[in-house]
Design a protein around this nucleic acid. Structure first.
Lengths: 212, 212
DNA sequence: TTAAAAATATTGCAAATGCAACACAACCGT
DNA sequence: ACGGTTGTGTTGCATTTGCAATATTTTTAA
């Protein structure tokens, strides 16, 4: 989801100009500064123009989780957010400039006099498509009714992606449990079952699916 | 997801020309004709140019379900599909023309000499964003760990959308159970519990959330 | 280096869930 | 008006799951 920058294929020297045509609010965050912006409900998105930042999710209990790291050219907020219902904060890891732009202006006629506006939009599509692919995969997993089936579905997807029946997990077990939306201890138990039944073998986060 | 046509804001008279610049494969389906095209894996999408069609999902058991109706200007396949892992068929409900276009050509330079190419792309973004919003909502529901929480999350979302604590379900209970990915009878049981505990009232597919 | 925090692993138990089966109502096309 | 299909409502039962608690290992940060 973060492989494509919004500014891909826009020459470095033209980015400033392009940003100017978008007519957004320019805000500079100092290091460790926290700005709570209700990005999900607003009809604007943030674009990291320079620096480095993290998006923090604050759930109803007040627990904070780092949702993602943001780097130059990354876009966040609105439909680019992953947890629509939770409150989000942007925390600058460095001095960072963020441009807040309204959707309409991102798409609309404002930018059309800039030759890279089309490029910008194509990049956006690219980002959106990748996001949709990720969502599709996750839903495919969440659609399964048992922990076992969720795990196997997920493993099989990784098998395909990594072109090997020995796969390595893209995140740790705690996060995996969140991803498939089940209790972690119950998940561990099921993984143990799969091992006992010799359906998988595990070595840390490397998992081998056994066929016979 | 189907509110926005790909050809929104393109004058009727220019659509043909626009389609031509996309350089896709043009295929005409006769009524009731079934064309199995592995749209999900292919790097192309289908656009219904004229007529009326349905997308049918065929699951691993051979069961057929109508996934969606498609009308003029609708786009399907690839990241526009809802069930990535299942096989899909297109069934023409009328004589229908479908244009199969590669992603690259949809986005790329081929169409750039057409003044409506930008409009096309903006419409695409619109479609993608709506899709992402739908996915976000569904994931929010699927993320809950109990049937009760899934139901309540879903109801609360409808409450917000319909601006009323009396909501009506957008689909029937069988489909709802699929949507929240639980066993239907278990869901019915839980709905009954919610009624017994006077957390909700129901009248067919009209549900009232009770606050006290 | 060391202390604190996060991740892994395991278990008992109560509660929730899926499954299978069935009855009945509503709807549809002929 | 009919029979067939689809949706609703319900139940018993075995199994799965979440929850809470606790121990151990690994990672992180001061």
């Amino acid at each position: 989801m973060k492989t494509t920058s919004l500014f891909k294929n826009v020459p470095e020297s033209d980015i400033d100009n392009l940003i100017r045509t978008l007519q957004g609010r320019h805000i500079t965050f100092k290091k460790d500064m926290t700005i709570l912006s209700n990005l999900n409900n607003a009809n604007e998105v943030g674009i990291l123009v320079s620096g480095l930042a993290s998006i923090i999710r604050i759930d109803y209990n007040g627990n904070r989780t780092i949702v993602s790291d943001i780097k130059k050219g990354d876009i966040f907020g609105g439909c680019f957010s992953d947890y629509m219902n939770e409150e989000m904060s942007v925390i600058a890891d460095d001095e960072s400039e963020v441009l807040f732009v309204e959707y309409d202006k991102l798409l609309g006629s404002n930018g059309k006099n800039n030759i890279y506006h089309v490029t910008l939009i194509e990049n956006m599509i690219d980002i959106l498509m990748k996001k949709i692919n990720n969502y599709n995969k996750r839903i495919e997993v969440l659609n399964k009714r048992s922990i076992r089936d969720k795990l196997l579905e997920f493993f099989h997807m990784l098998e395909k992606e990594q072109s090997s029946s020995t796969i390595h997990l893209p995140f740790n077990y705690t996060v995996l449990a969140d991803y498939i939306a089940v209790d972690r201890s119950a998940m561990m138990r099921e993984i143990k079952n799969l091992k006992d039944e010799e359906i998988i073998k595990t070595d840390n986060r490397i998992i081998t699916i056994i066929y016979r």
